[in-house]
Design a protein around this nucleic acid. Structure first.
Lengths: 338, 338
DNA sequence: CTGAAAGCGCTTACAG
DNA sequence: CTGAAAGCGCTTACAG
């Protein structure tokens, strides 16, 4: 039932069916018309012998592996499992496999992975960060390696397909919401600012506050790194600030959740002391307490769309970029302070 | 810099170095002694031409892909990212790649994946569930497909290497701990009982309670499924019970966390109303509130060891099974009710 | 230690 | 529509 051992080859099938190997290949790959009579013979020989084409021999001619690589920083960051699941569900439905690569957002590690994958044969690559640098991506693109960028916009790379949420708008929504609740003093714990997602959430938020005449002195920005540990640490930093905010916007849920832990340890009541809002709407956000108010991205869907576009590109079509809408999810980590 | 296009082959390298392709192959694969002189020539030709061996041609001869498949139910269940990370870190350090497969624990889906992977060429397989059935695994083993079972013991499969925590002992520890806190009435929310991990945690727990003379009527078992959703639902079931426990042992943290949410929604104080203990010590357990007391498994390490053993088997050595010790992690979801 | 040659198992012009 | 044959890019007995 399983291949791997006593290998039956295309020649065995051809003999059994009384045709040439070429004919077997043609019916299996539907790469040319074959008469119904021979088709039937071939098919029954295939199933009798339980023939499975050798992937290497096939690849040697076609140069295709039906595998794609997903490059992420860390599957342990709760944003990525949902993304990976979206990707995997789609690619597997198309007969592709997903190779998972954790780079911890280190440039060398990212580069090493990409080269490893390319050398083993991969049909396409999905990036969630661009630590390798833009030149590297450009060279991939010009070697026509199918690529898709997930969760952020490429800055300066012609022709790189991407799938994102409108991060700027998400920042605006967070700002509008906190303002509507009557808040006057704000902290933003941002993502890494070398990353467009981090930058856009920041500027959407700040622009909105300024639009509402919040003064500079009532806004603080702390740069962090999108991890739970980073969020935990930033909560400590906030408590050491002389400036006391009434509301904190974390650029993602993972950081907000890390901060929630710190506040809990310090016996600081949320939302009584600080209103907190996150970004992403990862699964656990509804499970922490208080349940986290957040700006949601459709993470699973982003994964699926990215996968769909990547496979389109692999199969020779043109990929399209897409921008999804963020949405406010009100839970209980913010309060009205009128 | 990137391969894929204008392909330079082993023949180009051979010409440039003034040797035969065989010699190039030998220095690259260290498969026979080559004189230092030629070795040097070959190496410099390789790097000048930036030669990368074709993975398909290589595989056609060697039948190896340096990829392994990890079969899990759902990467979105927070147990699996930590496991996957452990596996991936190890395999990538050995030059292997990890193919991720989410089966939702459905037998057909599991089977489909295994066959897909085998057909594309995979060097080894890691299972976290055995929904495909034992016969299937046995046939893999007899076709000498390297396999490792992770997180549970095989029931009846000769020669299947496994890596687990001592689940029975973990159940005992949970029981002893709750007893030591003075509890008298218990609910156990178990994992699926067709799974040895679920069964062993259950029996360790129950055996311990009985050893301490807890009467049957003071113990209830609710079978669930190791998911957060399942835990949430079971919390509802508990609240509808006429029987009121003082302590609840969840067979994993994901379920405990789902239950915590339900209790929070129902305004039931933990640990005041119920003491709660989980199993696994997944990352978020320390982040929920109250922080979850649990029996820890070294998930990341399990992943690493499994990967190590699998690669040993792939490379022709004998793999060893290992059993790790569970450990009590006291946090704040249990209280003493003396 | 080194090379010429066969062969891994397919696919695909080329002919008919 | 079908087959004989070349070729994909390596590896590995076989000889020397």
């Amino acid at each position: 039932m399983i291949a791997k051992k006593g290998k039956v080859s295309i020649i065995d099938v051809a003999k059994k069916a009384g045709v040439s190997p070429a004919t077997v290949s043609r019916v299996l790959n539907k790469t040319a018309k074959v008469s119904p009579k021979l088709t039937k013979k071939v098919l029954s020989a295939v199933s009798e012998l339980n023939y499975v084409p050798d992937p290497f021999a096939h690849g040697l001619k076609t140069k295709r592996t039906r595998s794609i690589g997903l490059i992420i920083s860390d599957i342990t960051n709760p944003f990525f499992p949902e993304l990976a699941r979206g990707v995997e569900d789609y690619v597997s439905s198309m007969g592709y496999s997903l190779i998972l690569c954790n780079t911890d957002a280190k440039p060398e590690s990212e580069k090493r992975y990409v080269e490893l994958l390319l050398n083993k044969g991969i049909d396409g690559l999905m990036f969630t960060s661009l630590r390798v640098g833009e030149d590297f991506i450009r060279s991939l693109l010009s070697d026509s390696v199918p690529c898709v960028l997930v969760g952020r916009k490429p800055e300066n790379i012609e022709g790189l397909v991407y799938v994102v949420t409108d991060n700027y708008k998400g920042g605006c929504i967070a700002g509008e919401y906190l303002i509507s609740l009557g808040h006057k003093r704000f902290v933003h714990v941002s993502g890494p600012l070398d990353n467009s997602a981090g930058r856009e959430r920041l500027s959407g938020f700040i622009d909105t506050l300024k639009k509402h005449k919040v003064k500079e002195e009532n806004i603080r920005v702390i740069e962090s790194d999108f991890t739970m540990e980073g969020g935990y640490k930033s909560a400590g930093d906030i408590l050491r600030l002389k400036f006391l905010p009434t509301a904190i916007f974390f650029a993602n849920d993972a950081m907000a959740i890390g901060a929630l832990q710190k506040f809990w340890e310090e016996k600081i009541d949320i939302p009584e002391t600080f209103s907190i809002i996150g970004f992403d709407n990862i699964k656990v956000s509804s499970l922490v307490s208080p349940p986290l108010t957040t700006i949601s991205q459709e993470i699973y869907k982003i994964g699926q769309i990215s996968a769909r576009e990547l496979i389109k590109i692999i199969e020779g079509e043109k990929g399209d970029s897409t921008i999804l809408e963020p949405k406010l999810i009100e839970r209980r980590s913010c309060k009205c302070i009128e």
